[in-house]
Simulated assay, not measured.
Amino acid sequence: MTDERPGDRLAARLEALGLADALAESGLPTVARDDQGRAGWTDPLTGRALSDDEIERLDALLRQQGSQPEHAVPVGLVQVARRARVREELLAGRWHDYPSLAEVRGTSVDATRFAVHKAASTHRLLLVNAGEQVLIPAFQLTADGEVRADLAPVLEPLLAAGMDPWRVWAWLTGPAALLGGAVPERAVSDPEEAGLVLHAAVRLAERSRHTDA
């Protein structure tokens, strides 16, 4: 027999959509199951358990999208979950911290940190904050750890526009609709495609400015 407790119903729905893990990042109440599989909901600010009435209100809040609330998907959570998946994929790729890049460059960590931040300050190098760690995605570097000259002009408008660094990383290293599915960081190395990649980056930067305004 199906347990009709509001907390269990909502938890099962979000778990089926693959969205339960996105609750915390969204600042929403979080859910955890006990040894009997019952869902317990916790307020992120007070740490107290939510009542059934509060869970019902949370469920209604998450169903506000669309004309059929009973079938609505919480779009905000979908977006958070998608960002989390993209970040996991990016982190599984190649990137440097200061010590590993210093080793590639054959310089000290302090010298590398100075050079990295100097390049970043002129929007020629992408830095990504992951918690307390600063990541330097490897795709933008040459084999000896220097900034790719062909990619720097593409990075400049994106970073100057204040785009989210994770989004910049994802766009540059994945198939881009503005380029007919080509990967920007690869296509820019072709002199015949470099202008098109730069144009696409400028358009994306402009769109980002308008969206964030």
Rank of each mutant, 00 (worst) to 15 (best):
V134D: 05
D150F: 04
W171Y: 06
L179V: 09
A149L: 13
L127F: 13
P137G: 01
A161C: 07
A170T: 11
V147A: 01
D150I: 02
A152H: 03
H123R: 10
A149N: 12
M163E: 11
E156T: 15
H123W: 09
H123E: 07
P165Y: 03
W171A: 07
A161I: 10
T173K: 04
M163S: 10
A143R: 15
L135W: 13
G145M: 07
P175I: 11
A143F: 12
P153R: 10
L125Y: 01
L141E: 03
L155F: 00
T142W: 00
L141D: 06
N129Y: 14
A177M: 12
A138V: 10
A170D: 14
F139S: 02
G145V: 06
V147T: 05
L178E: 15
D164K: 07
T122D: 13
L126I: 03
L158C: 12
L125S: 04
G145S: 08
L125G: 02
A160K: 15
M163T: 08
T142E: 01
A152T: 02
P153A: 07
A170R: 10
H123P: 04
L178R: 15
A120Q: 13
L127N: 11
L179K: 08
L172P: 01
F139Y: 09
D144C: 10
L135D: 09
R167A: 15
R167T: 14
R148I: 02
V154G: 04
L172I: 05
H123D: 11
T122C: 12
L127A: 11
D150T: 12
Q140V: 04
L135G: 09
T173S: 09
L135V: 13
T173L: 04
P137K: 01
G174K: 06
P157I: 04
L155V: 01
E146Q: 15
L159R: 01
L141A: 04
A170H: 13
L159N: 00
A176D: 14
A130N: 13
E156S: 13
A161D: 06
V128K: 03
L126H: 00
N129G: 15
D150C: 04
P157Y: 05
P175H: 11
L179A: 09
H123L: 02
A130H: 15
L126Q: 00
L179S: 09
A176L: 08
A161L: 07
A177R: 15
A161G: 06
V128M: 02
D144Q: 12
D150N: 10
W169Y: 08
G145H: 09
L135F: 12
L158K: 07
G131C: 10
N129D: 15
R124F: 03
F139A: 05
L159T: 01
F139I: 05
D164H: 06
D164E: 14
L127Y: 12
D150E: 14
L159A: 01
A160M: 10
D150L: 04
D144M: 10
E146D: 14
Q133H: 13
A149V: 15
I136N: 01
A120F: 04
L126W: 06
E132W: 12
A119H: 11
N129F: 13
V134G: 04
A138S: 13
W171C: 01
S121K: 08
L151M: 07
L125W: 00
P157T: 03
L126R: 00
P157S: 06
T122A: 14
S121M: 08
N129I: 13
